[in-house]
Design a protein around this nucleic acid. Structure first.
Lengths: 222, 222
DNA sequence: TCAAAAGTGTTTGTGGTACACCCATGG
DNA sequence: CCATGGGTGTACCACAAACACTTTTGA
């Protein structure tokens, strides 16, 4: 039996948010070797007394101060030579956070910044692969589940929601079809409140916690 | 920073095959503590010089003598107290093997047997969860990809293929609709050969290696 | 000629897509 | 009254589902 105690397990979290009409991920500029000055996904070693998911939740909290948001396992990256310092197995997670946030720079970072997925900087390790895979998964998931809400405030208008979908998917959607489908899916409900703005006031909706977010039978947006 | 070198990484493989008109998984009866006498998914520690996927391929080969079959990462299980011997992180894989096989009992097993997914024995660790999750994923995947072939011999009839789908999904399918869809999807082609049997001979088909197995636009069997 | 499995089309319903105008408010 | 964004319905098309009989072979 091979020795295994020299395999290190890390959790990294691809944190998505909608900012400035753009889909962005939170990246950290490395201040140490290897890949000093390159950008990396927040993450670190799993603690001995925490589960993988708790580790991901902790990393998310340390970087953003946010708790209780949508987080899910993406994939586990375990090829050789991912990190020159040793054998690393990285369990990657996706987190969706609902709004722009003040950032806590972590101890392992000289800088943490939101970066557009359309203009990603040079990244450390295989983190570019991880972000691209996370984006693919997020878009795919949006087609048949209701995760879009998780990147909006608790109350939102249908236009905001459609805008979120369009920003994430990178394409325009038809307003009437969008509204019909999202309402038919019964995943949101009216709050009764209205939001005043530049034109006609809009109804505010909220996510229905009792709804079945996973639409198995048919995709929401094929 | 917590010590991490006492976290062990294992790969376990849920190996599916169609046997006796039944969907079965390969399980190993444990001959050591903990869970002595209970059944477990084949697996073991990742070697230092192999990737996770190579580890899964190796485990599969050690148990079945099979190589070159469909294998994919399922999920990584990393809660605490999964194994009384220490902190284990298990990267689970799914493998689909094309036919009944002679088995190599491994060094860590007193017995290896195919077990029906409808009559699973008492299992060690959280392996029952892993098998159930693997089954869910296999069925889900079958609805929108062409993985069904991977559990058949290289040449097969449409009836055999339909039977495979029915066995995996656990439901009857309409013959005419099945044939129309699977042919429209362009994932298989005629070999030109026929298979004689009890009634009218059937055309033999093969998987088209050039096909796009992933049918994104619409599910094959919603 | 009979048993056993292979093979084949049509109809009906549902859901997806495309598309343009009126409404309510604030300035 | 005008600018701005909110809100609404219908017609067409493509695909899914339901459904029963004929064909080919071996015994």
């Amino acid at each position: 039996m091979a020795r295994t105690s020299d395999i290190f397990v890390t959790v990294d979290v691809v944190i998505f948010a909608l900012r400035d009409d753009d889909l962005q991920v939170l990246l950290i500029k490395r201040k140490n070797q290897p890949f000093e000055g390159k950008w990396a996904i927040p993450g670190g070693f799993v603690h001995h007394a925490e589960s993988l998911e708790d580790g991901a939740i902790r990393e998310l909290y340390e970087e953003t101060g946010v708790r209780g948001v949508h987080i899910e396992q993406l994939y586990t990256f375990g090829t050789l030579n991912r990190d020159p310092r040793g054998r690393m197995v990285t369990v990657a997670y996706i987190a969706l956070v609902p709004a722009p946030l003040a950032l806590h720079a972590g101890t392992d970072a000289s800088d943490a910044q939101w970066k557009s997925i359309y203009a990603l900087p040079e990244m450390a390790f295989d983190h570019a692969d991880i972000v691209h895979y996370a984006l693919k998964r997020l878009r795919y998931k949006l087609e048949y589940t209701a995760v879009g809400f998780r990147m909006l405030p608790p109350k939102f208008t249908l236009s905001q929601l459609q805008h979120a979908y369009e920003t994430i998917l990178g394409e325009k959607l038809d307003k009437r079809n969008f509204r019909r489908r999202i309402l038919q899916a019964q995943v949101i409900e009216e709050t009764g409140e209205m939001q005043s703005g530049d034109g006609r006031p809009a109804k505010l909706y909220r996510y229905r916690e009792d709804s079945v977010a996973e639409v198995k039978a048919r995709r929401l947006f094929p």
